[in-house]
């Protein structure tokens, strides 16, 4: 599985405005284009997941994730915050690159969810280390960078 296979341009926002964790989660969930109730459900589950331990994996990357009944397939949304947001990351640094993963409880084997998480974690680290990630201006450039990195 490659990152380019599980992300779509309409689920990428390279200009996140929020200055805190909950705001970022809300902006990311909006990218999933769910109805209001489904959005609230996913947000609640994501916040519960964050309470278990931050999904900020360091190096400026956070991967909020959960499984929820309200989606029918593994869905990924990408966000970039130019200023960075405190996400209680393991290295205590602000996160600026976010990958939201929401997977269904059934219909897709749990393995798919973990494979998607692994794919995203690997690609996210590579992207965060590439200086171009902070300079790219549109989704097309982002997708091109993902492909150039072989992800």
């Amino acid at each position: 599985m490659k990152l380019s296979e599980i992300i779509t341009p309409e689920r990428i926002n390279l200009n996140l405005k929020s200055a805190n964790r909950d705001g970022v989660l809300e902006e990311l969930v909006k990218l999933l284009h769910l109805d209001t109730h489904a959005r609230e459900t996913v947000l609640r589950t994501l916040c519960a997941r964050e309470e278990l331990g931050s999904t900020g994996i360091g190096k400026g990357v956070a991967i909020p994730h959960c499984r929820s009944l309200v989606v029918s397939e593994v869905t990924v949304a990408v966000g970039r915050s130019k200023k960075g947001v405190s996400f209680k990351s393991i290295d205590k640094r602000k996160a600026f690159l976010f990958f939201l993963i929401v997977a269904p409880p059934v219909g897709a084997p749990p393995g798919d969810y973990l494979i998607a998480l692994g794919t995203v974690a690997q690609a996210a680290r590579l992207l965060a280390m590439d200086k171009r990630i902070k300079k790219i201006r549109d989704v097309r450039q982002f997708m091109k960078l993902v492909e150039e990195l072989g992800q």
Partner: peptide, 12 residues
Amino acid sequence: KMGLKIDNLETL
């Protein structure tokens, strides 16, 4: 292994 820790199960 991915850097995603899980604690605080009591909050859940």
